[in-house]
Design a binder for these strands. Structure first.
Lengths: 214, 214
DNA sequence: TAGATTGTTAATCGATTAACAATC
DNA sequence: TAGATTGTTAATCGATTAACAATC
């Protein structure tokens, strides 16, 4: 598994949220944004926002702000979201369906073009405009479709074999929603989403608040 | 919104993953674990693991390792997951249903005891053992059930009013899956999950790999 | 000009990593 | 004892914050 350290990863995690807000602002006809607006929106300091935006290479106008359109384009380009990437999703259970139905991916340059499941009853059906194929065809279709991104939403015990199939199919990046560590070649990137991580933070904050006098 | 900085938040985010692995190991009859095992599982350095575990107050035996049972109890207690917390969920769409169906929360000391939706057709039905109530009754039932945690899975435009209802109902912590910044009193904690954040990281890693020679 | 905001440089803070003695 | 592992102390690294000059 790739251990490549990515610099500025907190900044990168925040970029989609800026992007979302900026697109919203553009929709409502605004053309300029200043950091205080974004800082308030994200509940972070203004300096953080300016440092974050700097990473995109865009400069603002002192006393005025940034051009919204420029920022949107620069963030998209930085994240490689200016060109749509195609992905496949494996595991059309409740989480998989939720992800298939997520409308936000348009903003994120992601398009799920096929889904796979082991359940025979689901094969051939369409969930949120996406046809469900049998997992047996996973690596074959990945190759044929030249897909580089795979999204794993199967139960933990099956995740490794799915990952193996994705790798065999030429996938270069795996977005892993299953609660397991995947073994993949160094050349393949795995982004694991641990939903309980956020809950842990919530729990600790909630609890420390109950006891702290500070 | 609370800006309380939580120290060691990367550590706290990792704790649920240790916990998960440890519980798995206990199930298969193991009683002792050494850091190299956990480090390999999580793809991080051994020292990180030791530092992380230290936060729980547990000490291991040099040359041997840690007692799995002790670690499990200490992590649970640190995260306040030794006592089950009750929560309500609002928005029984596809994401909401996925969360209602997530079996892992048992490990995380969370129990969703009621769900709410605006869709009349869903009211009274049961999704994953959880009855669906009308949102109109949200704050009333929160008060009556004395629930302290609310999970928001409604579309972004409705999230703020749901948050207001939760706060009115006495909820102290909100786990927000809607893509908006919520305005809540300082005394209420909000944990916002931005799914696109992980995707941004994935995109940047995937892309930097394509170009970096290093 | 005055007020607002940017962007740079330096300071602080926290997290990760390294080195190593202590212990089983 | 030798090998493995812990846990502490110090060093490094990166991210956030502060201060402030420059600019519209």
């Amino acid at each position: 598994m790739s251990k490549n350290k990515i610099l500025k990863s907190p900044t990168i995690r925040r970029l989609p949220t800026y992007l979302h807000k900026l697109i919203e602002m553009r929709k409502s006809g605004e053309t300029i944004v200043a950091t205080p607006v974004l800082a308030k929106y994200m509940n972070i300091g203004e300096i953080v926002v300016r440092k974050d935006l700097a990473i995109t290479g865009i400069t603002g106008q002192p006393g005025v702000g940034y051009k919204i359109k420029e920022l949107i384009d620069a963030i998209k380009s930085f994240l490689n979201w200016d060109m749509t990437s195609e992905a496949v999703l494996v595991g059309a259970g409740s989480l998989g369906s939720a992800i298939l139905g997520y409308e936000g991916f348009e903003e994120n340059g992601l398009k799920i073009i096929a889904a796979f499941d082991a359940d025979g009853d689901k094969i051939g059906t369409v969930i949120h405009d996406c046809e469900i194929f049998p997992v047996a065809r996973l690596s074959e279709l990945c190759k044929r479709l030249q897909v580089k991104i795979g999204i794993i939403c199967v139960p933990a015990p099956f995740a490794q074999e799915v990952a193996d199939d994705l790798v065999a199919g030429g996938v270069k990046a795996i977005w892993n929603f299953a609660n397991v560590a995947l073994k993949v070649p160094d050349s393949v990137i795995v982004q694991r989403e641990v939903i309980a991580g956020g809950l842990a933070l919530l729990s600790v904050k909630l609890n420390s608040q109950n006891y702290d006098i500070n």
